[in-house]
Design a protein around this nucleic acid. Structure first.
Length: 262
DNA sequence: AACCAGCGCAACCGCAACTAG
DNA sequence: ACTAGTTGCGGTTGCGCTGGT
């Protein structure tokens, strides 16, 4: 097809495209259309549903917001832990990570990482991808999260820093047919003697990526000693760390600790 | 009460991979 | 084999909300 000038039917259509926040009417149109015809083929879906949106926009809106099994709101400690662990394995593979958190979207996990985790890296004045920060996550935050989870679940063994855990890494099948699987979490904690996160880290140190990274046992000894020492920073270290949410800024102790360790 | 800065989230953009013709 | 269209992903941005001054 040949068109003269710069105005093609496609560009006319583009000029008519809506952008920005979705309205309730648009949401209803999209939901009703998908309920009747299913999802997929987003460009034609957008046209057929009478939406003046791009297919990409429709897809994003559906996946991140309108999907019936999508969960929004507080990221639980279990989910935080899983995100930290999976990110340490795969990096910014948000969609892959999201497969292991039922109902969570890659966008939400990405936002969580950027707003919460990177903020703490900033507070620690180190790069989120630095070994230093990763060690803090692995040996400080994650064990504390595990402990919080255990305390919350009423597990009496919650006292010792939880070094042995393994998420059952079963990706949630995002197939459209079983969208009703919402609420069947794939994340479970079990005392299986499989390589834990610290062991995993130690293993990786051997394959050339590691350096003079502090060893898990070494960390546990030094950290628990300082944290529990009477008159020391225990009240700041243990208690406050237990109480903090990811939004809080109580990094004095960690700063001190970092300076001691690294 | 007004202003401002920081935060959180929804949405967009660009690119790469995939698919159909 | 090539091309155009589509889909999916990760990075980025814009804006409303909230808390502090």
């Amino acid at each position: 097809m040949e068109f003269h000038g710069s105005i093609t039917p496609q560009s006319v259509e583009e000029m008519d495209l809506r952008r920005g926040p979705w309205t309730v009417e648009e949401d209803l149109l999209l939901m009703n259309y998908i309920a009747a015809h299913g999802e997929g083929r987003w460009n034609s879906l957008a046209r057929c549903a009478g939406l003046r949106r791009t297919g990409k926009s429709c897809r994003l809106r559906w996946l991140n917001y309108l999907r019936p099994d999508v969960r929004r709101g507080n990221i639980t400690p279990e989910e935080q832990l899983l995100i930290l662990e999976l990110h340490s394995r795969w990096g910014n593979r948000w969609s892959k990570i999201a497969q292991f958190l039922p109902g969570r979207t890659d966008n939400e996990i990405k936002n969580y990482w950027r707003t919460r985790v990177q903020k703490h890296a900033k507070q620690l004045k180190c790069d989120v991808n630095s070994k230093q920060f990763k060690d803090v996550m692995r040996y400080l935050w994650m064990p504390r999260l595990i402990e919080r989870i255990r305390v919350a679940s009423g597990d009496p063994t919650a006292v010792e820093p939880a070094a042995h855990w393994t998420p059952e890494l079963a990706p949630v099948n995002p197939s459209p047919d079983n969208s009703s699987t919402a609420g069947s979490p794939s994340l479970q904690f079990s005392p299986q003697p499989v390589p834990d996160i610290c062991a995993d880290c130690s293993t990786r140190q051997g394959d050339g990526n590691g350096g003079d990274v502090i060893q898990p046992g070494e960390f546990a000894a030094s950290w628990s000693a300082s944290a529990l020492s009477p008159g020391g920073d225990a009240h700041l270290g243990l208690l406050d760390f237990d109480q903090i949410q990811w939004g809080d800024s109580l990094w004095t102790v960690e700063d001190i600790w970092l300076q001691q360790q690294f």
